[in-house]
Design a protein around this nucleic acid. Sequence first.
DNA 1: TCTGGGGTCCTCAATCCC
DNA 2: TCTGGGGATTGAGGACCC
Length: 350
Amino acid sequence: MDAFYASVELRQRPELRGKPVVVCGSGPRAVVTTASYEARKLAGIHSAMPAAVARRRLPDAIYLPPDFNAYREASGQVMAVLRRNAETVEVVGLDEAYLDLTGIFSPKATMRRIAAQIKEETGLTCSVGISESRMLAKITSELGKPAGLVVLSREQALERFAADSPGLIPGVGPKSVAKLEAMGIRTLAQLRARDPVALEHAFGPRQGRWLHSRAGFEDETPITVVRETKSQSTEITFDVDVRGQAELEAHLEQLAEELCRRLAKRQLEGRTIGIKVRLDDWTNVSRSHTVEQPTNDLAVVGPVALDLLRAYAPQRPVRLLGVRLAGFDSGEAPEANEPPEAQMQLGLTA
DNA sequence: TCTGGGGTCCTCAATCCC
DNA sequence: TCTGGGGATTGAGGACCC
C-alpha cells in the first residue's frame, strides 16, 4: 500500500489532501511512522526518522498521532479484497501481501482489476509488482510507486539492476552493504561475479550462498498463507532514562500485565519468558528463562521477569524496557504446504 | 538530530543426551 | 573405558523488516 497510515488518515480528512502529512508519536523520542509523498518530496522525510528532525525540517506539515485501530480496520478491508480474488494470499504486516498467481491466465489484467477494487472499496491505492519470485515481486513493486503496476522478468532485472547496490535486495541491510563494500563489492553485478566460496568465507556458509543466489535474483521462497506467531512482546522507551531499580520494576510489572492481557486475548501460552533492556549508551541486553509449562499467567510471567531484571541489575540508566513471551506450543503440526511450481508469483507491497 | 514498537530469522556457544 | 560425533534445547546477541 502507498504511504499506508498517512493515506488512511487522509481518507478521514480529505481537506488535508495535497498537504504534507506525517504520522508520528508526540514524545521527545518519537520517530516518523509514515510520511505522505508530499512530505517525502518536500523535505526528504521518511519513516524511522526522528520526529524532532522532521518537525525542524518541515514545521508546517500536518503531524498526526498514529491510530492503529483505524489502520488495522483498513488493512482488513484490503486483505479481504485480496482473499476474494486469489487462493494464496500471504499477508506481511498491515500494508503488504504476496499473491501466488501461478496458473492465472492473465496476471496483469487480474491485478489491475484487484487494485481497482481496492481503490473503489477502500479509497486507498497500492503498488503492484509482478514477477517470477517473491523477492523480485517485492523489488518490482517499488518501481511503480505510488499506484503503479510493473511487470519485470528475472532477465530484465539482471540487466536493469546490475549497477545497483546489493542493498536493493530485501534482507541486505546497511551492515551487510558495508561489509560487502569492504570486500570491494559495490554492485549486484560484482556480487554475482564473486566466487561463492569467498562469500561463504566472509558471511558463513548459509548467508554466503544466500547472498550469491539473491544477487542473481534467484529465490524459491514459497508463498504461505498461514504465519504462526512465534513470540509476542511489549516494550516501552522512556521519555527520560530511568535509573532506579524500584521504578524499573514498577514499569516491568505494568508491561507484564499488558503482555499477559494480550496473550490471553489471543489464547497464546508460551514457555520462554524474557526481558529486554536498552541502556543509555544504546547497548541491548536480553535475558530469558524457560519454564516447564506453557503459560500466559501474570502470576508466573511477572515474577520470572522480575527475577531476570533483578539478576541483571542494570548498571547504567535504562532507555527501554520490554517483556517477551516465546515458545508457544504450536497448535498443530505445520501442514505441508505444497511446494509451489512457481511460474508466476506476484507481490503486492507497500 | 539522536534514533519506536512489534516482530522474524540467523549465528554461536554451552549443555545434555544418545 | 575412552573418545567422538551428532541432534535437540536453551540462552544471548544481532541484522533486518514493516
